[in-house]
Design a protein around this nucleic acid. Structure first.
Lengths: 125, 125
DNA sequence: AGCCTACTTTACGCATACGTCAATTGTTTT
DNA sequence: AAAACAATTGACGTATGCGTAAAGTAGGCT
């Protein structure tokens, strides 16, 4: 039988408050089981939440993330579904590839600032 | 003499509304010149705004960006200033490097989903 | 002069993403 | 059993990032 976690345990592990986790659930991003009235999270719930956290670090909104999670769930049996899936995935990829460019540019700038600052630190300090 | 732009010209070029640009100014991210009461933007203002747009695509908040812009402006003459600058730059770098990891992971997942979907598209469709 | 257009400030509105009580309930510890 | 603790569901509050009138001004066209 699988190990189950409480909401605070899960929150502590992933750096989230119970309030945040419940909020994500209210937006349809999670649907954990219950024991009585208490929420219980299994490893799949946990993996899902980790994915949410990762997407949030990338700056995605919760509704973005909801759509992103749908990509996993969508059934590619129907041709129309599949085409839609592919289109959505490619749209997300495009956004992320742009983000990659932005990231590289910004990191280059920051490393340059750091280089100059440490250089002055060596000569002046 | 340098060419100056109006707020709508600049907005059109960078995909922003005048409202957004004024809002950034109200948060201290920009300080364009004036001709009468009208704002005028030079190339430095434009470069600054492009940097803001890029940072926003990376999911940074405006106050994050304000601090980020300070990194350029900060005077590394004073040792204390310089140490602070280096520390802040390194903190930003750490965030962005984490973001890079998240980005790579997420892109890998998306490309995998796309691969599977197109594969089914070839065999089934 | 009168009008249109572009700009200005001020102000209220709104969606997102939670924080923070409040009141209640079930569990566990003493 | 009483107290303390962990969880629950509302409900209201708040910061961010603008959108959207509203009301006024300044310049150019007919």
């Amino acid at each position: 039988m699988e190990k189950l976690m409480t909401i605070t345990e899960l929150g502590d592990e992933l750096g989230l408050t119970p309030r945040a986790i419940r909020f994500y659930e209210s937006k349809g991003l999670l649907s954990p089981g219950r024991v009585g009235s208490n929420r219980v999270y299994n490893y799949r719930d946990r993996a899902r939440l980790k994915l949410i956290v990762r997407a949030k670090r990338l700056g995605f909104s919760l509704s973005d993330i909801a759509e992103y999670l749908d990509l996993y769930r969508s059934d590619p049996q129907q041709l129309e579904q599949r085409q839609l899936l592919i289109a959505k995935v490619r749209a997300r990829i495009a956004v992320l590839e742009q983000q990659k460019i932005d990231l590289t540019t910004t990191l280059d700038e920051l490393y340059e600032i750091e280089r100059q600052a440490t250089a002055e630190s060596a000569s002046v300090g």
